[in-house]
Computed example of a mutant assay.
Amino acid sequence: MSWSKLKQQLEGFLSPALHRRVEYRAPGYRYLPDKSGICYISVDKKNVLNMSDKTNTIRWYQTELEIKNDPDIQIPIANSDIEAVRQATKGPVPEDRLIVMARSRKSTEHAKELMSAQAALVKSNFIVVANQFLTTPIEESLESEEILLNILALVDRRVGKKRILSMVEKMELKHPVVRYFYELRRDTL
């Protein structure tokens, strides 16, 4: 599918409140066919997501430790997580220490997931992911670990106000760029 047709389809699915604000851009490299996957998502004429550039306004993590120390990421701990740590320790451990250990374990798992999703985004081809988005149900795109699929689904008109408002807890665990587009969409409701 040509870029212009793909762009037209993606913009056709944009939420009406974001119609003129969010744009999909692809610089034309006429003589460099291997550069066709480089694309940008801009908000209010400002490039917000450039898949190959980590120097934009969205925070990109370099290490797992940065993710663990980020105060914006609040990782909820369930009783089952504490119980799993209790069984793994096989001994008397104070309750407050179990909570700290469970939080550390969950934050390590979460950091690894975010780092792998971030690495996949840099390597991915926007056109391939956009075609995947157009052929999969919106629920799958929202639940996906792929950052770009999350973004395309969040700005989609098929995701209603009730669903956006009910996603607050899920968004706390997502990458900052996904949270940015979530907040952009939530603010337009």
Rank of each mutant, 00 (worst) to 15 (best):
N47Y: 01
Q118D: 06
A26G: 02
E169I: 15
R105Q: 11
V122K: 08
A130R: 08
P71W: 00
N79C: 06
V100M: 10
R30C: 09
Q132Y: 04
R25H: 14
R97P: 09
I41G: 03
L121Y: 10
E95Y: 12
P137W: 00
V85W: 12
R105A: 14
R105E: 15
L189N: 14
P176T: 08
R21E: 06
L189R: 13
L149K: 05
K162R: 15
R163D: 11
L114V: 09
N131F: 12
S36G: 15
A153H: 07
V129C: 01
F133E: 12
V155L: 08
I67Y: 00
Q9P: 06
E172W: 06
V129E: 13
E11C: 01
L184P: 00
M171I: 11
S4D: 14
C39D: 13
L189D: 10
A84I: 15
C39N: 13
D81V: 04
W60I: 02
R158A: 12
P94Y: 06
Q87A: 14
M167P: 09
R179C: 00
Y40P: 00
N79T: 15
A78K: 15
Y29E: 08
K90I: 09
Q132N: 07
E172R: 15
Q8S: 14
L173T: 13
G91F: 05
S166W: 11
C39V: 08
H19F: 14
I127F: 09
Y29S: 15
E64C: 10
V168S: 07
P92S: 08
P176L: 12
P16C: 08
S80W: 05
L154G: 04
G91L: 11
L121H: 09
K174C: 08
V155I: 14
L152F: 00
L152K: 03
A119P: 03
L18C: 14
I38D: 09
L148V: 13
A120S: 11
Y180L: 01
V178T: 07
Q74T: 14
E169H: 14
D187W: 03
W3S: 03
A102M: 09
K112R: 13
S144L: 13
R21Y: 02
T108L: 05
P76E: 07
G37A: 06
A153P: 11
A88E: 07
E109S: 15
G12E: 08
N150K: 05
D70S: 00
L114R: 04
H19A: 15
A117K: 04
V100H: 03
L14D: 11
L65G: 12
L49A: 12
Q9F: 05
E83H: 08
A130M: 14
G91C: 05
T188M: 10
E140T: 04
V177N: 10
M167F: 01
P92C: 04
R30G: 12
L154W: 00
E113C: 11
A153V: 04
F133S: 11
V178N: 08
R179P: 01
